[in-house]
């Protein structure tokens, strides 16, 4: 343990812990809504578009995160403008996605500045985050959490039931675009930690795990954040002990938590989960042990 604590004197590790934690908190919190709104594919698309933004920025000699934010926010507004028509647009998004990712590869081929950077954009490089990037990540992260806190209730309403939310005066379209912009910013900062290709490990897996455990919105969001932070911290510790890339360990831990929960906890819709839902069960305890007498199924059920 002393060995691990001693490592904190190194800047690069302090940066890794700071940036990793901030990204985990924002990605875990936004992930709750990504899963609720079934926006996994949009998140995936934004990450790939971010790749072109990042490589384009480096090619032009600009800041990498700034380039990603510019590209992904523009794309988020475009996707958001599709609004309700987004459903069933997988083919259209996929088509644009392939072109934009190809553009990214063009940028890579046109400059020598990117030598080696392309891999770190694709897979993340948590141990190479500069002090400046930590500051940028902290500012964007704080901004995202603040805005999410401000739009939380209308966003939840619009995510769960857009038809009724609209009649109750929620600006459904606006809230949706606002969320996509937050998502774009979070995707851009997350890329430093886990990269374009592994972003689901922080943006989708923790939230999907949490939603399996509880249908209480606040608790689910908090659990999602906890799972994301635990994944990053455990991943970092493992990367210090074993000389493999931290991105791998982060995705592995995130996946392991997911597997454990899927294995141990029945899904929310199953009869077992129905009758024992009032308490959140820790994943280590089999749900069946704590079963109260099963409620008779309602004739309406």
């Amino acid at each position: 343990m002393d060995h691990l604590v001693g490592l904190f004197q190194y800047d690069f590790l302090r940066h890794a812990v700071l940036a990793g934690t901030i990204v985990a908190i924002t990605a875990g919190a936004l992930g709750y809504f990504v899963v609720l709104r079934q926006l996994s594919f949009a998140a995936h698309a934004l990450a790939h578009i971010g790749f072109s933004g990042a490589t384009g920025a480096v090619w032009l000699g600009l800041n990498l995160v700034a380039g990603m934010v510019a590209f992904t926010v523009a794309a988020a507004i475009g996707i958001g403008a599709l609004g309700d028509r987004l459903r069933g647009r997988d083919v259209a998004i996929g088509t644009v996605l392939a072109f934009v990712t190809g553009l990214g590869y063009l940028f890579v081929s046109q400059t020598t500045r990117l030598a080696g950077r392309a891999t770190s954009i694709l897979f993340g490089d948590l141990l190479a985050i500069s002090a400046e990037s930590v500051v940028v990540t902290a500012v964007l992260g704080a901004l995202s959490v603040l805005v999410l806190g401000a739009i939380y209730r209308p966003l939840l309403f619009a995510s769960v039931d857009p038809a009724v939310a609209a009649t109750r005066g929620v600006p459904v379209r606006l809230v949706g675009i606002g969320f996509l912009i937050l998502l774009a910013i979070t995707v851009s900062t997350s890329v430093q930690v886990v990269g374009v290709l592994l972003i689901f490990a922080l943006l989708v897996t923790p939230a999907a795990t949490a939603q399996r455990l509880t249908a209480h919105p606040g608790r689910s969001l908090a659990l999602s954040v906890v799972f994301a932070v635990v994944s990053v911290w455990a991943g970092l510790v493992l990367a210090v002990l074993i000389p493999w890339p931290p991105s791998f360990f982060i995705t592995a831990v995130s996946f392991a938590i997911y597997l454990l929960v899927v294995w141990r906890v029945p899904s929310l819709g199953s009869p077992i989960a129905r009758s024992s839902r009032r308490t959140v069960k820790p994943p280590s305890r089999p749900a069946r042990d704590s079963l109260p007498a099963e409620r008779p199924t309602s004739p309406l059920g």
């Binding site: 806190g149 401000a150 209730r153 209308p154 309403f157 939310a165 109750r168 005066g169």
Partner: peptide, 10 residues
């Protein structure tokens, strides 16, 4: 949400 879903905040 029918009660407070239209209000900003959390």
């Amino acid at each position: 949400l029918g009660l407070n879903g239209h209000r900003w905040g959390f």
